[in-house]
Design a protein around this nucleic acid. Structure first.
Lengths: 139, 139
DNA sequence: CTTGCATCTGACGTCAATGTCAGGTTCTAG
DNA sequence: CTAGAACCTGACATTGACGTCAGATGCAAG
């Protein structure tokens, strides 16, 4: 497929796909006339890249994490493995932080629901269950 | 305290603190000579603002979420309440997404640990426990 | 071959949060 | 009072992930 179809199927702009290639995140074949060509695997890859972006990982780091783009992947795989584990743990800590922030928001919602607009922001709270919806104005 | 001390205690740059005030996130008193003054409550508030930033919430949204800065907070509190619940649920969904990404990273780590550098990126996986450390190169 | 849409490269614009610099003022120590 | 650190306002610079535009080229249909 060409770049327009890949963009349509992934919800990522054509501009971004070219940018990913610039950054070394995404490889592409070229047709005779020089147009980029992709196949099904690229759809998965682009979606995964989007997830990593959503996790706050920069394109440079993504390029380090996914060196399987077009490397022989034999000597550098050890380094990539370490970077991967490092970023994994960083993401885990980030999720834990966000869960605490979620708890803080819940405390804030609870404390402002009764009309008390107290500026004393919520203290540290234990981790929350992200799947529990808010009782007020949920959905 | 003055702005330098607040910066030191929160780990936020002086520049950012002034920016927060510009954006209506943070109020400050002024001394005779026009220098900003803060007290203990501002320390908590700045830290909370940082958490909201870390949750991917923009300064404009934060300003909408924390209108208690120096508003009468009587008529707009209903709107703020709705925005608060909205952002809370958005954050919860974001956390769920990140948990799936974490699972994907775990799958990637597992699949690359045995030397197989397969480009077939991990499928959708159920939510993970963010607190579990990685066995390889953990810590 | 022509029409027209998709694509190409390359460059500049944007936006948010922050860095940094300049030139002037306030506060604190001696 | 004086030196120097901290602070003030205002402005321009930076970074990352794009948007957007211009001018040229590829490609499928008639």
């Amino acid at each position: 497929m060409r770049i327009g179809e890949l963009a349509g199927r992934t919800g990522v702009s054509v501009r971004s796909l070219r940018y990913y290639e610039d950054q070394g995140l995404l490889a592409s074949g070229r047709s005779g006339g020089g147009q980029r060509t992709y196949d099904e695997e690229h759809v998965e890859r682009v979606r995964f890249i989007q997830h990593l972006y959503a996790a706050g990982i920069s394109s440079r780091t993504i390029a380090e994490l996914l060196p399987c783009v077009e490397r022989p992947s034999e000597e550098n795989s050890g380094t990539a493995q370490a970077r991967l584990a490092e970023e994994r743990d960083k993401l885990a800590r980030h999720i834990a932080d966000l869960s605490r922030t979620l708890d803080s928001l819940d405390s804030l919602i609870a404390s402002t629901a009764d009309g008390t607009c107290n500026h004393h922001l919520p203290e540290g709270a234990p981790a929350a269950d992200p799947a529990r919806p808010t009782p007020v104005a949920a959905g």
